[in-house]
């Protein structure tokens, strides 16, 4: 039998995303393994066992070995890995934090990621996000759990220019958010005729 086919919830949107100008680039992030990590105390031992120092500052993220560690709460993080299978990541992280009283859960398919790049993406996000995204306030390493339109999202800033973001959204809301983003970007996709 052939290998099992994977399908992405936003396959039907790919063409529309590809047509967007660079000023409002939207790209679907590839499937990555993600684990929700819960841990009461973050210390050097935790860092050693996990291979990443989990960020303790609220609303921040840090790069991890092959992914990111995003602060979700005072005892909760989202850890991603581009090199491990979902069950591998869960098993590794769970083994690392279990002795410290922590836990880990595979949430790879809970959310999908969209990469938003370009000079106008902040304008697109500002149409539905009440958090201040000015790069002075929301530079590289910032994150926020908030709403974009009517969808709950985790928003990550990847640059100090405000021109590179990742939006993580619950998979079932992905189609809504994709439609919302395309609609929000519409005014930047037309060449002014007057």
């Amino acid at each position: 039998m052939a290998e099992l086919l994977r399908t992405h919830p936003l396959e039907a949107w790919t063409t529309a995303f590809e047509r967007l100008p660079d000023t409002v680039g939207i790209a679907v992030e590839p499937f990555v393994a993600m684990a929700d990590v819960r841990l009461g105390t973050v210390d050097s031992e935790a860092g050693t066992r996990l291979g990443v120092d989990l960020p303790t500052e609220a609303n921040t993220w840090v790069p991890a070995e092959a992914g990111r560690a995003v602060w979700l709460g005072p005892d909760e993080w989202l850890l991603s890995s581009t090199t491990e299978a979902p069950e591998e990541l869960e098993a590794r992280v769970r083994a690392a934090v279990l002795p410290l009283g922590g836990s880990a859960t595979d949430v790879s398919a809970q959310r999908i990621g969209l990469r938003l790049t370009g000079a106008r993406v902040r304008d697109v996000l500002a149409k539905g996000c009440s958090v201040d995204l000015h790069p002075r306030v929301f530079g590289r390493g910032s994150s926020a759990q908030t709403t974009l339109g009517q969808a709950g999202v985790v928003l990550l800033s990847l640059s100090d220019t405000g021109e590179d973001h990742v939006v993580l959204v619950r998979s079932s809301f992905a189609g809504y958010l994709a439609d919302w983003l395309l609609d929000a970007a519409l005014e930047f996709t037309h060449t002014p005729t007057r």
């Binding site: 399908t7 919830p9 039907a12 149409k127 339109g149 009517q150 969808a151 619950r170 998979s171 079932s172 809301f173 189609g175 809504y176 958010l177 439609d179 919302w180 609609d183 929000a184």
Partner: peptide
């Protein structure tokens, strides 16, 4: 605003929606 038509209320769908 833009909360009209398809965007009035989010439609959540499963992976099998198509």
């Amino acid at each position: 605003g833009r909360d009209r038509g398809r965007l009035f209320d989010p439609e959540r769908v499963t992976a099998l929606h198509e």
